[in-house]
Design a protein around this nucleic acid. Structure first.
Length: 424
DNA sequence: AGGCTGTACTG
DNA sequence: CAGTAC
DNA sequence: GCCT
């Protein structure tokens, strides 16, 4: 053991027990705190020139990977098991093992304590949860002395989105029961089919991943029969949002204020600007709806049928799963997005350019198959470690370079010979 | 030494 | 274009 | 912070 006199991980067990957590859950919680702290600009806000400052986004990313690795530990890991993730898990290195050792010996992480004892850091972590306040604004607001949500409400320079969100702050923080989301999907589906019977509504996000509670609602509309080149689905949003307001489901819009003249006042000034032309073609809507007397965040999108598979995959998430599936796609010579899957090559610094047409994608499973990744049911799409190389049966991202190069996969012409129905 | 997903909307 | 969100 |  370390210098505390409590050997054999006893300090760690005590710390976990004090919070009613398993040792694993406690460790994950500590590292999640680090991830959240760096998301909120832990090494930017103080003005102190900490080692590695300016990399907080990368560290947030790093600690998310660490959390994913830790989630796969047993409930009460011994030291050997903790140490082993350093060699077994891609993205876990020496500094992380040192922190695990610190936890093992003392039950605490000095870094976490440091952050939680810093009022400005605590404020940043609180305020960054507000819609429209990100890594940049949160640093500036806290620098100006904002510490609480009440402080924030006093500001007169908030964006319209932030003001709207603050109206419902308490309600929006509450988890959404699963059946409320199904209900909203059905209501949207009913309105949608009045507008165009070819429309179908699908609830995605954590709902589709099987969660009993969600933070927001993700509903996707698919325009059946619409294919490449069709722009019909773009008009759907412009028509359905006013209907959903009339229906009483929507109460506020967070996006597209200029897109629906009947709900915005800036029409004359904006109608001629390029940004509004773009907004009129928008496929994404973000707003607030009311279900069972409680206001909730709603995201609504509309896609033509030929993009159903990649859109479904993308909006089902999780976000972390998407990230690493996209990285796997990149490693195999593709770019993956909600719009499709297409061969692409790296050209120049940080630039990836398409090297072939979008492929026709029949289903989510088809996307996994093309990428030679093991199909994962929505409920299993959690993190990096759920992205499995189906040629080895092991996680795609491994520490030791045991991943086999697959010439047939990066050879675009042969791939398309197997999947001749590429979309041009 | 550079990169860490890719895309859409706002101001 | 930077900032934000998903 | 870690990987290539």
């Amino acid at each position: 053991g370390g210098g505390t006199g409590l050997g054999g991980g006893a300090a760690l067990e005590d710390a976990a027990a004090n919070q009613g957590l398993t040792v694993r859950a406690y460790i994950v919680d500590q590292f999640r705190k680090l991830s959240n702290a760096y998301r909120a600009g832990a090494d930017k806000g103080t003005g102190a020139r900490m080692h590695g400052s300016g990399r907080s986004d990368a560290r947030e990313y790093h600690y998310k990977q660490v959390c994913a690795a830790l989630e796969h530990l047993s409930d009460s890991p011994d030291w050997a098991e903790l140490e082993a993730i350093g060699t077994q898990r891609h993205g876990v290195g020496g500094k992380t093992i040192a922190k695990l050792r610190e936890l093992w010996d003392t039950g605490r992480l000095g870094r976490v304590d440091e952050f939680s004892n810093n009022p400005e850091q605590v404020a940043r972590e609180l305020l960054i949860k507000v819609h429209g306040i990100g890594q940049s604004r949160v640093v500036e607001l806290v620098r100006q002395g904002v510490r609480t949500i009440s402080d924030l409400r006093q500001r007169t320079d908030l964006s319209p989105q932030t003001s709207i969100w603050l109206k419902y702050h308490d309600q929006l923080e509450q988890p959404i029961p699963r059946d409320h989301i199904g209900e909203v999907r059905d209501r949207i589906g009913a309105v949608a089919s009045r507008i165009d019977p070819r429309l179908k509504a699908i609830a995605c996000g954590s709902y589709r991943r099987g969660k009993m509670e969600s933070r927001d609602m993700d509903v996707m509309l698919i325009l059946r029969g619409a294919g490449p080149g069709s722009t019909e689905h773009l008009e759907v949003m412009a028509r359905i949002v006013p209907e959903l307001h009339a229906d009483g489901l929507l109460t506020d819009d967070l996006t597209t204020p200029g897109k629906f003249p009947q709900f915005g006042k800036k029409t004359a000034a904006r109608v001629t600007t390029p940004s509004v032309v773009q907004a009129e073609n928008s496929i994404a809507y973000m707003g607030i709806c009311i279900v069972g007397g409680v206001h909730r965040r709603l995201d609504l999108r509309c896609y033509p049928e030929h993009q159903e598979a990649p859109a479904l995959l993308h909006f089902t998430g999780s976000g972390d799963f998407n990230r690493f599936m996209s990285r796997a796609a990149n490693a195999r010579g593709f770019t993956l997005s909600e719009l499709g899957l297409q061969p692409s090559v790296i050209k120049g610094p940080a630039e990836r350019v398409p090297s072939g047409p979008h492929l026709e994608l029949h289903s989510e499973a088809h996307i996994f198959e093309i990428l030679r990744l093991e199909y994962k049911d929505p409920s299993e799409r959690r993190d990096k470690i759920d992205v499995i190389d189906s040629t080895t049966g092991r996680p795609f991202f491994q520490t030791r370079e045991s991943r086999t190069a697959l010439p047939a996969l990066t050879d675009t012409s042969r791939l398309q010979a197997h999947h001749p129905a590429a979309i041009t």
